[in-house]
Every structure is written in structure tokens, then in C-alpha cells.
Lab assay of single mutants.
Amino acid sequence: VKKMAKAIMADPNKADEVYKKWADKGYTLTQMSNFLKSKTAGKYDRVYNGYVIHLD
């Protein structure tokens, strides 16, 4: 998940494709939050927020 999150950060155009894969795998927002937690607070906030919007 972190590898794909980094791919989104490097190229935001990949976001919809990645979010669809995550949704197809049934990842919940709680799971995504836990996967994307980082020592650098807020590092993956943009990715998480994008997934929230995708699921909505």
C-alpha cells in the first residue's frame, strides 16, 4: 500500500487507478489509515483524503 501511495504522490494522475484497486480489494478507511501511518505526520494525508473522496 505504501508503495502505491508513494506512486500517487509522485504522479497524482495514477490516483484513480490505485484507489479503484484498493476499493476492489475491500480496503476500509481504517485499514488505509493504519497502513499509511508514518513517523512523518501528515505525509500521506493527501492520499488518504483522496481515497475518502473516491469511496464517497
Rank of each mutant, 00 (worst) to 15 (best):
I53L: 14
M4C: 11
W22N: 01
A10Y: 09
Y48N: 01
S33Y: 13
L55G: 01
K39S: 13
M9P: 01
V18H: 03
L29Y: 04
F35L: 13
I53P: 02
L55A: 02
D56N: 14
E17L: 08
Y44L: 04
M9S: 03
K43Y: 12
E17H: 07
V1Q: 02
K6Q: 14
W22F: 03
K20P: 04
A23V: 10
Q31E: 11
S38L: 05
G42E: 06
Y19I: 02
K39P: 09
V1S: 03
L55C: 06
D16V: 10
K21V: 13
Y19A: 00
S33P: 02
Y48F: 13
L36G: 02
A10S: 11
D45Q: 08
T30V: 12
K14C: 12
L55T: 04
T40Q: 11
K21M: 15
A23F: 08
A41F: 09
A15T: 06
A23L: 07
N49H: 12
I8S: 02
W22S: 00
Y48L: 15
N34W: 11
T30W: 11
Y44V: 01
G42Y: 06
M9N: 06
K39Q: 11
K20S: 10
A23R: 09
F35W: 15
K20G: 08
M9T: 04
M4P: 03
N34F: 12
K14F: 09
A5R: 01
P12F: 10
K2T: 05
H54D: 02
T28L: 04
D16K: 11
G26H: 05
L55N: 03
N49F: 13
K6I: 10
N13S: 15
G42T: 05
V47K: 00
S38W: 06
T28W: 05
T40H: 15
K3G: 08
E17P: 05
I53F: 09
H54T: 04
G42R: 04
V18Q: 04
K37N: 10
G26E: 06
D24T: 10
Y51T: 03
L55M: 08
G42I: 04
N13I: 09
F35Q: 04
K2C: 14
A15G: 05
F35M: 14
N34H: 14
K3T: 11
A10L: 13
S38I: 05
T40C: 10
A23N: 06
I8V: 12
N49I: 12
K39E: 14
V1I: 14
Y48A: 02
G42V: 03
D16M: 10
M32Q: 01
S33H: 13
Y27G: 01
F35P: 02
N13M: 12
G50V: 07
A23S: 12
R46C: 14
A41K: 14
D45R: 06
D45T: 06
K43I: 09
M32V: 13
Q31S: 07
Y19N: 00
K43W: 08
V52C: 09
G42Q: 04
A15I: 04
A5C: 06
K3I: 08
G26Y: 04
G26L: 05
P12K: 06
K39R: 10
D16H: 14
A41I: 13
L36M: 01
E17V: 08
K25L: 15
A7G: 05
K21D: 13
N13Y: 11
A23K: 09
N13V: 09
N34R: 13
E17N: 08
M32P: 00
A41D: 13
